[in-house]
Amino acid sequence: MTIQPPHIFNFTQESHYLEIMAGSVTELWQQREEGEFSGVDQVTIRWTAITQQQADKMILLVNGRVESYWKYQELIHDLAQQGYDVYAIDHRGQGVSGRLADDSELGHVEEFDDYVTDLETFFRTVITPKGYRQHFMLAHSMGGTIGSLFLARNPGAIDSAVLSAPMHGINIKNWMRPIASPLARVVEQLQRQPDYAPGQVPYYPKPFVDNPLCQSEVRYHWFRDLYEKMPELKIGGPSARWVWQGIAAAKQSIALATQITSPVLLLQASDDTIIDNQAHYRFCQAMQDADKPCELKVIHGARHELLFESDKYRQPVLAAAINHFRKAEIENG
């Protein structure tokens, strides 16, 4: 198999975005399979899959905080066009999976490790029985933390992984870093029930202008419109407990990086203000020090949501991801 150069990949273009979303993307989405299973503490975890006849390779898509697989219809379409079956879950407490607090818009979790256990259950009970020859992972943001911990706990399960702006650290102001986790713990103790961390609020649609997520206006408005059409997808700020759990999990993902055996491509957005980009270097260095393959690729000028960015950023991101997977396909025969 010859690896295609990035410029000939046929990914969705912004110039025909709404037409494509209403056409081939919707047509494929209507063919999706959906299911559910009981995660940790019997929380309902919903999942979806787009499968094709005779595909022997699959991509496990692991989305970020406040996201849903409904948001990833365009990406799933683009990946399917490259010959992959695609599977995704909605994490506990968000998307169409079971909520964990009385306030349905609160981003809450009891134990961050529950995200990982849910993903393991999905992989073991839904994906593994399908008998795919090769398994790949594409994980974004908080999903990158979950994916990193999954890879460390399940060496050999994934042939190759791409981490998009993974949350190996949270972007916290320097003066706050030493006290952020202890403060969140104290605030949680003072709350009678799970509630927002200081400064956090329920969902509201931030205007496109100066938003920290992406520079593609058409993609940004599409997913904001989706959340208005499906208000059950709306998630606001994190709970105090999620904050200190998230900080701890990000640190753990670096500490356990030495246990990852899958080749990792880490895609970093240079203009990311959501996560701590410096943590990416510590993660990759830990893998490399253990003689494990980790490549870090910086997408200059891009913001956090690399998979929803303007074409000039998103196209090379997807091309790099597909080429990374295809390299593993060739090496593994």
Rank of each mutant, 00 (worst) to 15 (best):
A320D: 07
G107S: 09
F283M: 09
H324G: 08
T125A: 14
I330W: 13
V96T: 15
F112G: 00
L233H: 06
A152F: 01
A88E: 00
L151M: 06
K297M: 13
L256Y: 10
V187K: 07
P182V: 03
P166E: 03
I45H: 05
G143Q: 04
D118H: 06
V201P: 06
R224W: 12
N171R: 13
M230K: 15
P238W: 04
D225V: 06
G147T: 00
G64K: 04
H108A: 06
E111D: 15
G98N: 02
N323E: 10
G236E: 09
T128L: 10
I170T: 05
Q288A: 09
M58H: 07
I127L: 07
F11I: 07
I76T: 01
V62F: 06
P207T: 08
R241F: 06
L18V: 05
V25I: 12
L79P: 01
E19T: 13
T125D: 15
F223A: 10
D272Y: 00
I330C: 11
L60A: 01
L296F: 10
L266V: 12
G83M: 02
S310F: 11
V317Y: 05
R65K: 03
K234C: 07
V317W: 00
L79E: 00
P182C: 06
D41T: 02
A286C: 04
A157R: 08
R177Q: 11
Q4F: 11
F11W: 12
G39I: 09
L60V: 02
L149D: 01
I158R: 10
L60Y: 09
I179E: 01
V40W: 08
V43R: 14
E188W: 11
K312E: 11
A184E: 01
P129G: 04
A165R: 07
R224G: 06
G93Y: 02
V62E: 09
L306V: 02
H135Q: 14
N277I: 11
Y115E: 02
Q31D: 13
H168M: 11
I89G: 01
R303A: 02
L266K: 10
Q53L: 15
Q53V: 14
D114F: 03
Q252D: 10
K327H: 14
G333C: 04
F325W: 07
I59K: 11
D276M: 02
I179S: 05
S24C: 15
H300P: 04
Q191Y: 11
L190V: 05
Y220R: 05
G35T: 05
F136S: 05
I179P: 00
I322A: 02
E295K: 12
K71G: 00
Q285V: 04
D41A: 14
A80H: 12
Y281E: 14
A88L: 03
M287R: 07
I89C: 07
L296Q: 10
F11M: 06
G246A: 12
N211C: 07
K206F: 14
Y84K: 08
R46N: 12
N63L: 11
L296M: 14
P178W: 02
S148M: 03
M230N: 14
D195Q: 11
D272E: 06
M230P: 03
M176W: 10
Y115I: 03
G169R: 02
L256C: 08
G131T: 00
